[in-house]
Design a protein around this nucleic acid. Structure first.
Length: 290
DNA sequence: TCTCAGGCACTAT
DNA sequence: ATAGTGCCTGAG
């Protein structure tokens, strides 16, 4: 096998300014799956483009095939959000001030709805590393191959790619009991029963109910899709890490129901509750509980 | 062998 | 409404 080392002289790179941003925290916090990491460089898909991204100080350097505008990259990385204002809004107590100090620079990305939904159906009862592995496996086997500067990048399978799949074929990728959920979800998107454009125009609660009609999607996964693909920053997904941390910090008890934690989070943190959630999640996983 | 992991659906109360 | 249980799979 001959490895190619293509010349770099004529390769195109673009840059965008990225204040208050840490690419690594944003890509590795568990909000997005399937990107390849090579040193400090991340390879993945944005829309229909294969992309290579890295951070140099307060700049993000990127290449994309087909090309992306800086505005598209800014939107994907959430760099158009006034992060200092968001963090001021959620730093409501000593605990949150500590969390914000520790995690500052993590931004919520704007994922495409379908790949996001697909990833989060897979996430049920799985750990982050395994979700990432499964998303990559599905992309390699069922997605489309793209190139950025000669390096292959695989898109996640489209709804059309998945409806063609037999359940046994998906199971052989390792997704287990989630295989029929993925196929049914793909069918609902392919035949228009789920219309992401229509959902974008709905209230958060309405869109949430629509998402929950998809098999394999309950409260938690619906909230994740709303937060990570629809920028509904007022949502507050409750997973086991958030549950444990919130119980300890804000309830001083165990066995608080997720729905109650969710209501509390939304009310307490307000318009940017989802940002608070992701910061707490990152803090709990990487800095331990207080 | 057993438990657990960033849940969901189904069933019984 | 709410509580209990099974489920693909891999790691510890």
């Amino acid at each position: 096998m001959v490895r190619k080392y293509p010349p770099k002289a004529n390769q195109m790179w673009s840059r965008v300014t990225a204040p208050d941003f840490i690419l690594e925290a944003s890509m590795d916090c568990g909000q997005i799956f399937g990107w390849q990491k090579r040193g400090a460089t991340y390879l993945g898909m944005i829309g229909g483009s294969a992309v290579s991204l890295c951070q140099e100080g307060e700049t993000v350097v990127f290449a994309a095939e087909p090309a992306l505008t800086p505005e598209e990259v800014v939107a994907y990385l959430g760099l158009d959000v006034d992060l200092p204002a968001v963090l001021r809004a959620v730093a409501r107590d000593a605990f949150m001030r500590q969390v914000v100090r520790s995690v500052r620079g993590l931004r919520l990305l704007r994922q495409e709805p379908w790949p996001c939904l697909c990833s989060y159906i897979i996430s049920a009862n799985n750990r982050v590393e395994r979700i990432d592995k499964l998303v990559k496996e599905l992309s390699m086997r069922l997605g489309k191959r793209h190139l950025v500067h000669g390096t292959p990048v695989y898109s996640q399978p489209s709804p059309g790619d998945l409806v063609k799949c037999a359940e046994s074929g998906l199971r052989s990728c390792g997704v287990g009991f989630r295989a029929p959920y993925l196929i049914k979800a793909a069918g609902m998107v392919a035949d228009g029963a789920i219309d992401f454009d229509a959902m974008a125009a709905m209230s958060c609660e309405e869109a949430r109910e629509v998402l929950k009609t998809i098999p394999g999607v309950g409260d938690k996964i619906a909230d994740c899709v709303l937060l990570f693909a629809f920028s509904r920053y007022e949502t507050f997904p409750v997973d086991v890490w958030i549950k444990r941390t919130m119980e300890k910090v804000y309830f001083n008890s165990r066995d608080v129901r997720p729905a109650e934690i969710r209501r509390f989070g939304q009310r307490y943190f307000g318009r940017f509750a989802g940002y608070a959630q992701e910061y707490i999640y990152y803090y709990a996983r990487n800095h331990g509980l207080t």
